[in-house]
């Protein structure tokens, strides 16, 4: 796998991890741009179907955080 083409799909809980990602921005932390965030209302919303679907669409990793 080429390091430059990594694609990570992340499902972030609106109340904690999404806010934390906001805060990372406020704190001007820098991190690699390989991540695409999908905001969900709670990690309880997460379904295995979303993970499988993300892999089928070519994701190299799926990150669920909440």
């Amino acid at each position: 796998m080429n390091d430059k083409d990594i694609k990570i799909v992340s499902f972030l809980c609106n109340w904690c991890s999404y806010g934390a990602a906001d805060l990372a921005g406020v704190s001007r932390m820098e991190y690699p741009a390989d991540i695409r965030v999908i905001r969900i209302p709670c990690s309880g919303r997460m379904s295995p179907k979303f993970v499988l679907s993300a892999f089928r669409e070519g994701a190299d990793a799926v990150w669920v955080s909440g």
Partner: peptide, 13 residues
């Protein structure tokens, strides 16, 4: 969110 999750955290790229 193209600021907190993007321009602010990938400013060198």
């Amino acid at each position: 969110n193209i600021r907190n999750h993007n321009s602010w955290v990938h400013k060198s790229n």
